[in-house]
Amino acid sequence: MPNILKPVAAAILFAAASGLNAQPTPDAVDLSSFPAKSIDDVVVPVPSEVFLVLDKLGNPNWRGEMRDSLGRQTGNRAQAALLLGTVIAEGFVAVEAEDPEKVKDIGRRVLALSKAINVEKAVLERSKSIIDKADVKDWKAVRKEFDGALQDVKGAMIELGDGDLAQLVSVGGWIRGTEVLTSIVRKSYTTDGAELLHQPALVNFFSKKLETMSNRRLADDDLVIRIRKMLTSIRPLIGDEDGAPIPVENVKKIHQLTRDIVVSITSQEA
Protein backbone atom coordinates (compact mmCIF):
# COMPACT_ATOMS: atom_id res chain seq x y z
CA MET A 1 0.00 0.00 0.00
CA PRO A 2 2.56 2.59 -1.14
CA ASN A 3 0.05 5.46 -1.24
CA ILE A 4 -0.37 5.27 2.46
CA LEU A 5 3.34 5.47 3.33
CA LYS A 6 3.59 9.25 3.29
CA PRO A 7 0.38 9.91 5.17
CA VAL A 8 1.46 7.32 7.74
CA ALA A 9 4.70 9.17 8.35
CA ALA A 10 2.84 12.47 8.52
CA ALA A 11 0.33 11.04 10.93
CA ILE A 12 3.03 9.64 13.18
CA LEU A 13 5.04 12.85 13.12
CA PHE A 14 2.22 15.32 13.39
CA ALA A 15 -0.31 13.59 15.57
CA ALA A 16 -1.75 16.27 17.77
CA ALA A 17 -1.69 15.52 21.45
CA SER A 18 -4.93 17.04 22.61
CA GLY A 19 -6.57 17.24 25.95
CA LEU A 20 -10.02 17.46 24.38
CA ASN A 21 -12.56 14.92 25.44
CA ALA A 22 -14.14 13.79 22.20
CA GLN A 23 -17.46 12.76 23.80
CA PRO A 24 -19.78 14.50 23.17
CA THR A 25 -18.64 15.79 19.80
CA PRO A 26 -17.78 19.49 20.08
CA ASP A 27 -19.80 21.78 17.80
CA ALA A 28 -16.66 23.73 17.01
CA VAL A 29 -12.90 23.23 17.23
CA ASP A 30 -9.94 25.56 17.23
CA LEU A 31 -8.12 24.48 14.08
CA SER A 32 -5.07 26.51 15.09
CA SER A 33 -4.43 23.98 17.89
CA PHE A 34 -3.36 21.46 15.25
CA PRO A 35 0.19 21.50 13.89
CA ALA A 36 0.43 23.61 10.72
CA LYS A 37 1.75 20.69 8.67
CA SER A 38 -1.36 18.56 9.11
CA ILE A 39 -3.63 21.53 8.45
CA ASP A 40 -1.76 22.91 5.43
CA ASP A 41 -1.60 19.68 3.45
CA VAL A 42 -4.72 19.26 1.34
CA VAL A 43 -6.26 16.13 -0.10
CA VAL A 44 -6.34 16.90 -3.83
CA PRO A 45 -9.75 16.04 -5.30
CA VAL A 46 -9.94 13.82 -8.38
CA PRO A 47 -11.46 15.57 -11.42
CA SER A 48 -14.62 13.48 -11.30
CA GLU A 49 -15.52 14.98 -7.91
CA VAL A 50 -15.86 18.34 -9.69
CA PHE A 51 -17.33 16.96 -12.93
CA LEU A 52 -20.05 15.17 -10.96
CA VAL A 53 -21.34 18.51 -9.65
CA LEU A 54 -21.25 20.02 -13.16
CA ASP A 55 -23.43 17.15 -14.35
CA LYS A 56 -25.92 17.93 -11.60
CA LEU A 57 -25.98 21.63 -12.51
CA GLY A 58 -26.74 21.07 -16.16
CA ASN A 59 -25.92 19.00 -19.19
CA PRO A 60 -22.40 19.96 -20.28
CA ASN A 61 -21.18 19.11 -23.75
CA TRP A 62 -18.36 16.86 -22.61
CA ARG A 63 -17.43 15.82 -26.14
CA GLY A 64 -16.88 19.47 -26.96
CA GLU A 65 -14.45 19.73 -24.04
CA MET A 66 -12.20 16.88 -25.17
CA ARG A 67 -8.87 17.79 -26.73
CA ASP A 68 -8.13 16.37 -30.18
CA SER A 69 -4.52 15.76 -29.28
CA LEU A 70 -3.23 14.44 -25.97
CA GLY A 71 0.03 16.29 -26.49
CA ARG A 72 3.63 15.39 -27.12
CA GLN A 73 6.20 14.13 -24.67
CA THR A 74 9.48 15.91 -25.15
CA GLY A 75 11.80 13.99 -22.86
CA ASN A 76 11.86 16.58 -20.11
CA ARG A 77 10.78 14.79 -16.88
CA ALA A 78 8.88 17.78 -15.50
CA GLN A 79 6.91 18.09 -18.72
CA ALA A 80 6.31 14.32 -18.83
CA ALA A 81 4.90 14.34 -15.28
CA LEU A 82 2.69 17.37 -15.97
CA LEU A 83 1.56 15.85 -19.26
CA LEU A 84 0.70 12.59 -17.51
CA GLY A 85 -1.49 14.57 -15.11
CA THR A 86 -3.31 16.31 -17.96
CA VAL A 87 -3.79 13.00 -19.81
CA ILE A 88 -5.31 11.33 -16.73
CA ALA A 89 -7.62 14.35 -16.30
CA GLU A 90 -8.52 13.97 -19.98
CA GLY A 91 -9.47 10.40 -19.16
CA PHE A 92 -12.11 11.68 -16.72
CA VAL A 93 -13.44 14.04 -19.44
CA ALA A 94 -13.61 11.18 -21.96
CA VAL A 95 -15.51 9.09 -19.39
CA GLU A 96 -18.03 11.91 -18.94
CA ALA A 97 -18.32 12.05 -22.74
CA GLU A 98 -18.74 8.25 -22.78
CA ASP A 99 -16.28 7.91 -25.64
CA PRO A 100 -14.79 4.38 -25.47
CA GLU A 101 -12.21 4.86 -28.23
CA LYS A 102 -10.85 8.03 -26.65
CA VAL A 103 -10.77 6.39 -23.23
CA LYS A 104 -8.82 3.42 -24.63
CA ASP A 105 -6.41 5.76 -26.38
CA ILE A 106 -5.87 7.60 -23.10
CA GLY A 107 -5.36 4.32 -21.22
CA ARG A 108 -2.56 3.41 -23.64
CA ARG A 109 -1.08 6.89 -23.40
CA VAL A 110 -1.02 6.76 -19.59
CA LEU A 111 1.08 3.61 -19.89
CA ALA A 112 3.49 5.15 -22.42
CA LEU A 113 4.02 8.26 -20.31
CA SER A 114 4.47 6.20 -17.16
CA LYS A 115 7.21 4.31 -18.96
CA ALA A 116 8.96 7.60 -19.72
CA ILE A 117 9.21 8.37 -16.02
CA ASN A 118 9.99 4.79 -14.91
CA VAL A 119 6.69 3.94 -13.23
CA GLU A 120 5.24 1.81 -16.02
CA LYS A 121 5.03 -1.30 -13.82
CA ALA A 122 2.75 0.50 -11.37
CA VAL A 123 0.07 1.23 -13.98
CA LEU A 124 0.33 -1.72 -16.35
CA GLU A 125 -2.70 -3.49 -14.87
CA ARG A 126 -4.64 -0.23 -14.58
CA SER A 127 -4.03 0.55 -18.23
CA LYS A 128 -5.28 -2.89 -19.32
CA SER A 129 -8.27 -2.56 -17.04
CA ILE A 130 -9.14 0.90 -18.42
CA ILE A 131 -9.18 -0.56 -21.94
CA ASP A 132 -11.21 -3.64 -20.93
CA LYS A 133 -13.78 -1.64 -18.99
CA ALA A 134 -14.09 1.02 -21.70
CA ASP A 135 -14.86 -1.79 -24.15
CA VAL A 136 -17.90 -2.78 -22.11
CA LYS A 137 -18.73 0.87 -21.30
CA ASP A 138 -18.53 0.34 -17.56
CA TRP A 139 -17.93 4.06 -16.95
CA LYS A 140 -18.00 3.96 -13.19
CA ALA A 141 -15.29 1.29 -13.20
CA VAL A 142 -13.21 3.22 -15.75
CA ARG A 143 -13.42 6.33 -13.59
CA LYS A 144 -12.20 4.30 -10.63
CA GLU A 145 -9.30 2.92 -12.70
CA PHE A 146 -8.20 6.45 -13.70
CA ASP A 147 -8.36 7.47 -10.05
CA GLY A 148 -6.32 4.36 -9.18
CA ALA A 149 -3.81 5.04 -11.98
CA LEU A 150 -3.23 8.52 -10.62
CA GLN A 151 -2.63 7.22 -7.11
CA ASP A 152 -0.44 4.32 -8.31
CA VAL A 153 1.75 6.60 -10.40
CA LYS A 154 2.18 9.05 -7.55
CA GLY A 155 2.80 6.24 -5.06
CA ALA A 156 5.45 4.68 -7.31
CA MET A 157 7.17 8.04 -7.76
CA ILE A 158 7.24 8.65 -4.03
CA GLU A 159 8.73 5.19 -3.54
CA LEU A 160 11.43 6.10 -6.05
CA GLY A 161 12.14 9.26 -4.06
CA ASP A 162 10.50 11.45 -6.71
CA GLY A 163 7.94 13.19 -4.50
CA ASP A 164 8.38 16.47 -6.38
CA LEU A 165 7.64 14.77 -9.67
CA ALA A 166 4.56 13.12 -8.14
CA GLN A 167 3.33 16.56 -7.16
CA LEU A 168 3.66 17.70 -10.77
CA VAL A 169 1.33 14.89 -11.87
CA SER A 170 -1.29 16.22 -9.43
CA VAL A 171 -0.72 19.79 -10.57
CA GLY A 172 -1.03 18.82 -14.24
CA GLY A 173 -4.31 17.05 -13.55
CA TRP A 174 -5.66 19.98 -11.57
CA ILE A 175 -4.75 22.49 -14.29
CA ARG A 176 -6.47 20.49 -17.04
CA GLY A 177 -9.46 19.83 -14.76
CA THR A 178 -9.72 23.55 -13.99
CA GLU A 179 -9.46 24.43 -17.68
CA VAL A 180 -12.44 22.15 -18.41
CA LEU A 181 -14.39 23.40 -15.40
CA THR A 182 -13.96 27.06 -16.36
CA SER A 183 -14.75 26.31 -20.00
CA ILE A 184 -18.12 24.83 -19.01
CA VAL A 185 -18.94 27.43 -16.35
CA ARG A 186 -18.15 30.43 -18.58
CA LYS A 187 -20.46 29.08 -21.31
CA SER A 188 -23.50 28.98 -19.03
CA TYR A 189 -22.52 31.00 -16.00
CA THR A 190 -24.22 30.46 -12.65
CA THR A 191 -22.89 31.42 -9.22
CA ASP A 192 -23.26 27.78 -8.13
CA GLY A 193 -21.12 26.64 -11.05
CA ALA A 194 -18.50 29.32 -10.38
CA GLU A 195 -18.42 28.37 -6.71
CA LEU A 196 -16.71 25.12 -7.72
CA LEU A 197 -13.62 27.25 -8.30
CA HIS A 198 -13.53 28.28 -4.67
CA GLN A 199 -10.37 26.33 -3.87
CA PRO A 200 -8.04 28.77 -2.04
CA ALA A 201 -6.44 26.16 0.22
CA LEU A 202 -5.71 23.91 -2.75
CA VAL A 203 -4.13 26.74 -4.76
CA ASN A 204 -2.04 27.73 -1.71
CA PHE A 205 -1.04 24.10 -1.24
CA PHE A 206 0.14 23.72 -4.85
CA SER A 207 1.98 27.05 -4.69
CA LYS A 208 3.76 26.01 -1.53
CA LYS A 209 4.70 22.61 -2.93
CA LEU A 210 6.13 24.14 -6.11
CA GLU A 211 8.01 26.80 -4.15
CA THR A 212 9.62 24.30 -1.79
CA MET A 213 10.68 21.61 -4.26
CA SER A 214 13.89 19.95 -3.11
CA ASN A 215 14.86 18.99 -6.66
CA ARG A 216 16.39 22.25 -7.95
CA ARG A 217 16.34 21.07 -11.54
CA LEU A 218 12.57 20.64 -11.37
CA ALA A 219 12.10 23.83 -9.37
CA ASP A 220 13.99 25.83 -12.00
CA ASP A 221 12.18 24.26 -14.94
CA ASP A 222 10.61 26.94 -17.16
CA LEU A 223 7.23 25.25 -17.12
CA VAL A 224 7.25 24.91 -13.34
CA ILE A 225 8.18 28.60 -13.01
CA ARG A 226 5.28 29.54 -15.30
CA ILE A 227 2.87 27.41 -13.26
CA ARG A 228 3.99 29.10 -10.05
CA LYS A 229 3.21 32.46 -11.66
CA MET A 230 -0.14 31.16 -12.91
CA LEU A 231 -1.10 30.03 -9.40
CA THR A 232 -0.16 33.46 -8.03
CA SER A 233 -2.40 35.07 -10.68
CA ILE A 234 -5.29 32.68 -9.97
CA ARG A 235 -5.23 33.07 -6.18
CA PRO A 236 -7.01 36.49 -5.99
CA LEU A 237 -9.56 35.39 -8.61
CA ILE A 238 -11.06 32.48 -6.68
CA GLY A 239 -12.35 34.35 -3.67
CA ASP A 240 -11.45 34.42 -0.01
CA GLU A 241 -12.10 31.83 2.70
CA ASP A 242 -15.65 33.19 3.14
CA GLY A 243 -16.50 32.17 -0.39
CA ALA A 244 -17.74 35.42 -1.95
CA PRO A 245 -19.33 34.83 -5.40
CA ILE A 246 -16.82 34.45 -8.23
CA PRO A 247 -17.81 36.69 -11.17
CA VAL A 248 -17.85 35.48 -14.77
CA GLU A 249 -14.90 37.76 -15.62
CA ASN A 250 -12.77 35.85 -13.13
CA VAL A 251 -13.93 32.52 -14.54
CA LYS A 252 -12.84 33.65 -18.01
CA LYS A 253 -9.47 34.85 -16.72
CA ILE A 254 -8.82 31.55 -14.93
CA HIS A 255 -9.82 29.70 -18.09
CA GLN A 256 -7.32 31.67 -20.16
CA LEU A 257 -4.55 31.17 -17.59
CA THR A 258 -5.06 27.41 -17.34
CA ARG A 259 -5.61 27.00 -21.07
CA ASP A 260 -2.30 28.72 -21.86
CA ILE A 261 -0.47 26.40 -19.49
CA VAL A 262 -2.17 23.29 -20.85
CA VAL A 263 -1.09 24.34 -24.36
CA SER A 264 2.48 24.67 -23.10
CA ILE A 265 2.41 21.36 -21.24
CA THR A 266 1.01 19.46 -24.20
CA SER A 267 3.12 20.89 -26.99
CA GLN A 268 6.26 22.51 -25.64
CA GLU A 269 9.68 21.55 -26.92
CA ALA A 270 12.32 20.37 -24.45
Partner: peptide, 28 residues
Protein backbone atom coordinates in the same frame (compact mmCIF):
# COMPACT_ATOMS: atom_id res chain seq x y z
CA UNK B 1 -20.94 6.32 -4.00
CA UNK B 2 -17.44 6.13 -5.50
CA UNK B 3 -14.64 5.44 -3.03
CA UNK B 4 -11.39 7.34 -3.57
CA UNK B 5 -8.37 5.09 -4.05
CA UNK B 6 -6.37 7.34 -1.72
CA UNK B 7 -6.27 6.45 1.95
CA UNK B 8 -4.88 8.16 5.02
CA UNK B 9 -3.72 6.52 8.18
CA UNK B 10 -1.32 6.16 11.04
CA UNK B 11 -1.44 5.53 14.74
CA UNK B 12 -2.52 7.66 17.68
CA UNK B 13 -2.46 7.45 21.46
CA UNK B 14 -5.65 7.70 23.52
CA UNK B 15 -7.18 11.22 23.32
CA UNK B 16 -4.84 12.14 20.48
CA UNK B 17 -6.23 13.65 17.29
CA UNK B 18 -5.19 13.95 13.69
CA UNK B 19 -6.61 16.47 11.20
CA UNK B 20 -6.74 16.14 7.42
CA UNK B 21 -7.79 18.93 5.13
CA UNK B 22 -9.92 18.13 2.07
CA UNK B 23 -11.46 20.21 -0.70
CA UNK B 24 -15.16 19.37 -0.84
CA UNK B 25 -17.72 20.58 -3.37
CA UNK B 26 -21.23 21.86 -2.78
CA UNK B 27 -23.57 19.60 -4.77
CA UNK B 28 -21.74 16.40 -3.82
Amino acid sequence: FSVREDAWGGDLGVKEQQAMQAQLFKGN
